[in-house]
């Protein structure tokens, strides 16, 4: 039951990542920044999918809401960066609480479909509310404070936000609330008859996941200096689910590995063929059919077969 030495490894990993701008070219700095953003997004989704056992297919909604909120606040309303970030998270959380309130009444596939429906509602608003969101063409030309306007300083800014998010999510997942989520995932009836209000716990998980997705989205908006409706489209929700699956949903850090794997694969494969999606599709079929616990599952499989990462409780 003891959390294993995950903390040291995570700090070591963050340290290595921090070295990227020192040793790598601009290209790798950009790649790593994108990975950090999507890793945070995937971590937030895993709260729902991995911990709470609720398959959301509309998580991109909150990613997009956070992103649009942030670029609109900083650019249209010229709000300070930190306040914009905070407000973006808050707005995403409120949206998630409102949407979640309806969605958590449903289970399993119905839940997945309803979250998908809401994310498409967000997408449709993003493409049609042109005066505010920039419509089909997206919101372009977001302004950034000088401090983070060059790629390297932005990289460290993203790393800071990512690390904060990672630590907070880790604390949440190992909290008593985290245990309650796992209990619900494992056996909802039993959890109910321990005296838990399952719906409220699922709603709280949904809201937290939405808030962190919003934070990741805000980072993306700043990174791209704009936000595009594709970020709310259902394929974006599909992509982040793929990251969670690739990395391993029964592990806290898995989604980070998944996000990194997906980006690195894409970069590598794009050098050989323009048909990256077909390669990804085949890889996914392999993962689903052969290694459903993802990269983290493979890694822990090397260490110890059937170790406690299966419980999802205390794996790193």
């Amino acid at each position: 039951m003891r959390p294993r030495g995950g903390v040291q490894w995570t700090l070591f990993g963050l340290f290595l990542v921090a070295l990227v701008p020192v040793v790598g070219e601009r290209y790798y700095v950009d790649l790593t920044t994108q990975i950090l953003i999507y890793a945070l997004f995937a971590l937030s989704l895993n709260i729902l999918v991995g911990y709470c056992g609720n398959l959301s297919f509309g998580h991109a909604a909150f990613f997009a809401i956070g992103g649009y909120a942030c670029v609109i606040l900083t650019t249209t309303y010229e709000v300070t960066l930190i306040i914009s970030l905070g407000l973006s998270v808050l707005i995403s959380a409120v949206a998630a609480a409102a949407i979640g309130y309806v969605c958590v009444r449903l289970a399993a596939m119905h839940f997945a479909m309803l979250t998908l429906a809401f994310s498409m509602l967000v997408w449709s608003i993003a493409i049609k509310w042109t005066p505010v969101t920039g419509g089909d063409d997206g919101f372009v030309g977001a302004t950034l404070p000088d401090l983070i306007s060059n790629p390297v300083s932005f990289f460290y800014f993203a790393l800071l936000i990512f690390s904060t998010g990672l630590i907070l999510l880790r604390v949440i997942c190992t909290s008593t609330f985290g245990r309650a989520m796992i209990a619900i995932r494992e056996n909802e009836t039993r959890a109910t008859f321990m005296g838990m209000d399952v719906r409220k716990i699922r709603l709280q998980a949904f809201t937290i996941a939405g808030a962190f997705a919003g934070l990741a989205g805000a980072l993306l908006g700043l990174y791209n200096r704009g936000m595009y409706p594709e970020s709310a489209f259902w394929t974006e929700s599909g992509q982040v689910l793929i990251m969670v699956l690739l990395g391993g949903m029964h592990s806290f850090i898995g989604p980070v590995l998944g996000a990194a794997a997906l980006y690195i694969l894409e970069t590598m494969i794009n050098q050989y063929t323009e048909y990256w999606q077909i390669v990804l599709g085949v890889i996914l079929l392999g993962v689903v059919l052969i290694a459903p616990d993802g990269l983290a599952g493979l890694l822990s499989g090397f260490r110890k077969r059937k170790d406690d990462s299966v419980t999802g409780v205390d794996s790193e």
């Binding site: 398959l55 599909g238 689910l241 793929i242 996914l284 079929l285 689903v288």
Partner: peptide, 10 residues
């Protein structure tokens, strides 16, 4: 469900 979903997505 996640596996089925990602399968069809693949």
């Amino acid at each position: 469900h996640l596996l089925q979903l990602v399968f069809t997505f693949a």
